[in-house]
Nucleic acid binder design. Sequence first.
DNA 1: CTCTCTAGCTTGTTTTTTGCAAGTAACCAA
DNA 2: TTGGTTACTTGCAAAAAACAAGCTAGAGAG
Lengths: 143, 143
Amino acid sequence: MDRKNRSNCPISYALDLIGDKWSLLILRDIILRDKHFYKDFISSDEAIATNILSNRLKMLEYDGFISKTRDTIDRKRFIYNPTEKGLDLLPVLIATMRWSDKYSTEIKQRPPSIEMIRNDPIGFENRIRAKFSNTPTLLDRHH
Amino acid sequence: MDRKNRSNCPISYALDLIGDKWSLLILRDIILRDKHFYKDFISSDEAIATNILSNRLKMLEYDGFISKTRDTIDRKRFIYNPTEKGLDLLPVLIATMRWSDKYSTEIKQRPPSIEMIRNDPIGFENRIRAKFSNTPTLLDRHH
DNA sequence: CTCTCTAGCTTGTTTTTTGCAAGTAACCAA
DNA sequence: TTGGTTACTTGCAAAAAACAAGCTAGAGAG
């Protein structure tokens, strides 16, 4: 479970943690799409394999990007949430979306969040952050 | 040389293009470290393999992130430069560096750019952009 | 105690990355 | 013009990672 750390560079530091094909998509699901359960991630369009998802959730928890707690209402399942460290990747997600908004001419239908980011990126970020501000308890009311 | 495009999402769109271990580091070298030649990328601390570097340079050129032109002064080599599309990833690079600045407690010595970003991120971005604003000619005077 | 639902794990296969060695093309110097 | 140097480029075998599909385990529900 150890991370490698290819160099002292801040870019490579982040890439060594979340620079694979899937980690950032899972964080996107948790942070921007209000997904909090294993089955939610499975159902995303990108079709991640179950073993990869399981591994990435473990990694992301181990590295402190997300927390994993058993759902008190339906104790069969676990709730995945961003930590502050994970939520602090929001500017990276937003910057990436703005770039894609400009250059992905192929993509037909853009998510509504793209509109919001285009009009008011700071307000968008604040609203997302506000969603998670009342610490761990907020998720219990989701289901 | 075809890109896959796992879904319609703007995050996955960008990841499908530059979401591997190396592409963003090459762009970092070109955009933030004034590296423009093959041997410069080879000499970076992360130690990329020659075949991967060659492949990624091809991909980045094919996807329009960088341009490759023969050096008019030393015609043995090629000059790699960011396109506007590549340079527009600067906010992603900066957001990533700011995140690492906050969370990479292990990293001992930070690059001076981190200080500049911390003090004045917008000014930093503008100065980097200005460096590349006089289109292709600017690189000829580098060597 | 069995059934179902959620969340994984296992296994076998394919793809990608890696490390290294060899190859090629432009230029330079004798 | 020939031999060396620089700047890449290509090829190959081994290792690592991703993938697909089927299997399992644990927590309730009936």
